[in-house]
Write a protein that binds this DNA or RNA. Structure first.
Ligand code: ZN
Ligand code: ZN
Ligand code: ZN
Ligand code: ZN
Lengths: 164, 164
DNA sequence: GTATGTTATGTTATATTATAACAATCGTCA
DNA sequence: TGACGATTGTTATAATATAACATAACATAC
C-alpha cells in the first residue's frame, strides 16, 4: 500500500515497469502485444488519470495509427482480457492495472480534484462482499468498486490554500 | 435482508409502497413529484430489473408523454437527487431505491441470468471501504459497488435442470 | 388578478461512448 | 505455397447522454 498514484513518485518507472511486465506476460501466454496494443497500453500509463477511448483514439491518430473507433476498442478489449487494464464504469475510462499477474477485480479510489485513480487490493473489501453475497445465496462472478472522493495530496493543497 | 428482489414476493406491494413513500418524501421536502416524474418512477419499479433510459422513453412515448431524451433524463436526475433511484453504472440502467429515507450509496447484486438487482445495505462493506480509504488518507464522498453473478433462484433452476 | 421570478417542460440539435458487419492483410505452420 | 486463424482496415450505425434555448406552469408579492 505504499507508492500510490496520488503521491509524488518516479512515474517513468510505473510506465516502464508496466510495459516490461506486459511484454513478459504476453510472451508467457503466447498472445501478441502488437504495436497498436502496446501503444494503447503506453498511452494509458502516461499518467494515473483514467483515460477515455476517444482520447486514446485522438492520440493514436496523431501518431499515424489507424483511428477508427474499433481500433482502440479492440486494443482495450485485448488488454482487458489480459488483465492489463481496468475500466472505470462510472466514468467510462480506462486505467492500467498495477498487478496483472494475478487476475483480480479492480477496486479504485478516484480523486475528484486531480482525477487520478489508485487501485486498492483489500482482502477486507473482498471478504465483506463475499459475506453479503453468501447471505443472499448469490454466486459472485465479478464486481466493480469505485470510490469517489478527494485524495490526501489534494486535501493538503486545499488546506494550505485555506490557511491564508 | 429478507424479502429480496430475487425471491418470489408480492411485487405490487413493492410498487405501491415505493410510490406512496416517494409522494410522502416529496411532500415533506416540498419538491414536486410531477406526473412525468411519478410515471418514470412507476416504470422503474415495474420490476427489479434495472431499466435503461431509452426503454423508459419508449414507454413514455406510448403513453403520450413527451418523448425526447431530456424528458427522461430530467426525471431521472430529479429522482436520483431525491434518492429515489440508483444508477447501475456498469450497465447504464436505473433501479428503484428500497430505502430512500436515509441517503446512502447503492450496493448491488446483479443477476446475470434473470437480470434483477438486489440492493444491499452492508455495514461491513461500508466499513471495509472506509478503512481502505483512510489508509490512503482519502476522503470518501460517494461510491459504487456492483456485484455481478447468479442469484439463488437462478442457481436452483440451473441445478434442477442439470439433475435430469 | 396581474406582474414577476422560479421551476418545469418542450424542442432541436449534437456530443459521447461503443458495436456490427464485412473486407483486406498478416503470421504461422503444414 | 497455400490454407488457416488472428489481426487490422473501413464504413456505418447503435446506444447513451447533454447543450442550448424557447415555452409553459406555478407561486408569491404587490
Ligand atoms: Zn506512477
Ligand atoms: Zn487528488
Ligand atoms: Zn418487488
Ligand atoms: Zn437470477
Amino acid at each position: 500500500m505504499q507508492a500510490t498514484a496520488f503521491s509524488p513518485h518516479d512515474h517513468t518507472h510505473c510506465i516502464s515497469s508496466a510495459i516490461t511486465h506486459a511484454k513478459g506476460l504476453c510472451a508467457e501466454r503466447d498472445v501478441r502485444l502488437t504495436p497498436v496494443r502496446q501503444r494503447v497500453l503506453e498511452l494509458i500509463w502516461q499518467s494515473h488519470k483514467p483515460i477515455g477511448a476517444y482520447e486514446l483514439l485522438a492520440s493514436l491518430a496523431k501518431e499515424g495509427f489507424n483511428s477508427a473507433p474499433p481500433t482502440v476498442y479492440r486494443a482495450l478489449d485485448f488488454l482487458s482480457e489480459q488483465g492489463l487494464l481496468h475500466k472505470l464504469e462510472s466514468i467510462n475510462a480506462y486505467v492500467g492495472c498495477c498487478n496483472p499477474d494475478t487476475p483480480h477485480q479492480g477496486h479504485f479510489l478516484l480523486c475528484q480534484v486531480c482525477h487520478q485513480a489508485q487501485e486498492l487490493d483489500s482482502q477486507y473489501i473482498t471478504l465483506a462482499l463475499k459475506v453479503s453475497a453468501d447471505q443472499h445465496g448469490f454466486e459472485m462472478h465479478h464486481h466493480t468498486i469505485e470510490v469517489v472522493g478527494t485524495c490526501q495530496e489534494c486535501l493538503n493543497k486545499a488546506n494550505m490554500s485555506e490557511a491564508t
